[in-house]
């Protein structure tokens, strides 16, 4: 049986990103189940996320909301919204980098629910 490393988007309910004003982008990971929330909160480090967005871990603002089972990150927009170098006016595609990110943690067997590490 082949083991695959799950992508974040396959585990969670939804991921979205959006401008929070022209200078900041914010990303919300809606984990859905408590077990998934616990896993993402443990395994998705600031270091991983900073590397995805070519920034420094200390420049990320991280929020964990157990009631909503959400892990949230905010950071300076790599390009100011709508400036010459900007490519995505609403910064909504940043979410796809998170969705497609392979968690380095434990692999899962296809077809079975992801193992909770909580």
């Amino acid at each position: 049986m082949r083991l695959v490393v799950p992508r974040l988007g396959d585990l969670v309910q939804d991921v979205r990103s959006k401008n929070a004003g022209p200078f900041t982008v914010t990303m919300d990971i809606f984990c859905g189940a408590d077990a998934v929330f616990e896993r993402i909160r443990k395994e998705l480090t600031n270091h991983d996320v900073a590397r995805l967005f070519a920034t420094e871990p200390h420049s990320l603002r991280r929020f964990e909301l157990p009631d909503l089972r959400v892990v949230k990150f905010s950071m300076r927009r790599p390009q100011i919204q709508g400036s010459l170098a900007d490519r995505d006016m609403h910064a909504a595609q940043f979410a796809e980098l998170l969705r497609e990110y392979s968690l380095p943690g434990c692999p899962v067997t296809p077809g079975k629910p992801p193992k909770s590490s909580g």
């Binding site: 959006k18 401008n19 929070a20 004003g21 914010t26 603002r61 929020f63 009631d67 909503l68 959400v70």
Partner: peptide, 16 residues
């Protein structure tokens, strides 16, 4: 409660 509280995440850098 979920739809309302989740709205504080939307477009806000800080949800609190």
């Amino acid at each position: 409660p979920h739809s309302v509280s989740a709205h504080m995440l939307y477009e806000n850098a800080d949800p609190f």
